[in-house]
Nucleic acid binder design. Structure first.
Lengths: 201, 201
DNA sequence: CTTCATAATGACACAGGGTGTCATAAGGTG
DNA sequence: CACCTTATGACACCCTGTGTCATTATGAAG
């Protein structure tokens, strides 16, 4: 399997070492998009700008949208991790949504530079093609939220609706934060979760 | 403007009459998709099957996804109309979500054949590419829901989160209904709205 | 019936996204 | 130095989506 994990980040023993820095390329792409527009910037342009071939570009980013969404992955991952942690500390069984709240907020902490994320999200907001990708990019997150809720005793159907609504609302919160100039996205995220309720309780 | 409204449905006075039946083509496409798979069926295949050119096909369906989502438009439109109606009958100000509930259910009534819609939705569910299009296809609906809520006195930010969550939950409801065999989608839709709350009240 | 205006139709060409194949290059390891 | 592993990119595809433009079919006007 020659092309399995483009970014192994593990130790290697032999073979030609990597010369391409994915982060640098994503950063370059973000700049080009901001400069010339998203759809007017072709993958060819980005590859040329990075001094590599188009195929090599596709090895690191499986799609054009991935150049943008890839940067959000740490946030999503951290948010997912928070749900696992919340399971252990669910002794305060009063609020079934506490876990979701914590998960939504947890993503914020791992963002190194909020202004870069804001740029990314603004780009996403401007292009429905990119925004709609939230459905795919956040699918694992939705599944985690669903399982979390089921683990808390929420009926399966309800958990499905809640997790879908949760992701849509928090995504909207990120969009609203990105559209403005407030430094802290947390209040937006908390307000978004306020819109949810667990029918049983 | 030669290509403005592909399906005027109004009266025309002169010119070559239409010989293509969009509904028949959408139906054919649905059959081909079910038979050979969505991505393995090219627009070329569909055009050939319909006995027309690929370009003519694009005149009636602006994208491949539109072949599927186009059939959901009556549902979306009816749902939107229900929100307008709900505004007039909002004397029962006890339940701010009554309008959304009515709108969600209103779409069901205009579906001529539920089994066809189920087929469409199953196809959508199986292909993330199609499912993610819900974001774009339902955008006008989200905007209408947002305005509706604002008209009811809900704060703007809350209305944004609520409408996003509302659409995601009801879309999930349609997906769950489509995945099963129950004849009536209404209970699913009502259960989905149960997941929402208006923070103020 | 002839002519004209109108609108549908599709042939052609093109840009761009995404994929597979495969020869080559580059650098560590022995 | 020889070898071996792996990154790299050149090449060739297919498909979606769009623009242009000549052609065709039809109803309406004369």
């Amino acid at each position: 399997m020659p092309l399995q994990d483009p970014r192994p980040s593990g130790i290697r023993s032999a073979g030609r070492p990597v010369t391409i820095d994915p982060d640098a390329i994503a950063s370059l792409a973000l700049r080009l998009f901001a400069e010339h527009g998203y759809e007017r910037t072709s993958m060819e342009d980005i590859a040329r700008g990075a001094g590599i071939g188009r195929k090599s570009l596709y090895r690191y980013f499986s799609s054009k949208a991935d150049l943008i969404w890839g940067g959000m992955e740490p946030v999503i991952a951290a948010s997912g991790l928070a749900l696992e942690v919340a399971r252990d500390a669910r002794e305060d069984s009063g609020d079934l949504l506490a876990g979701l709240r914590a998960a939504a907020v947890a993503g914020v902490a791992v963002i190194p530079d909020l202004s870069v994320s804001r740029g990314r999200l603004r780009l996403i907001a401007e292009h429905p093609e990119l925004a709609s990708r939230s459905y795919e990019s956040l699918a694992p997150q939705r599944e985690r939220a669903r399982r979390h809720l089921i683990g808390l005793g929420v009926p399966e159907e309800t958990a499905g609706y809640l997790s879908a609504a949760y992701l849509a609302a928090t995504f909207e919160a990120w969009m609203r934060w990105a559209a403005g100039t407030d430094p802290d996205p947390v209040p937006y995220l908390l307000a978004a979760v306020e819109v949810l309720r667990v029918p049983g309780a």
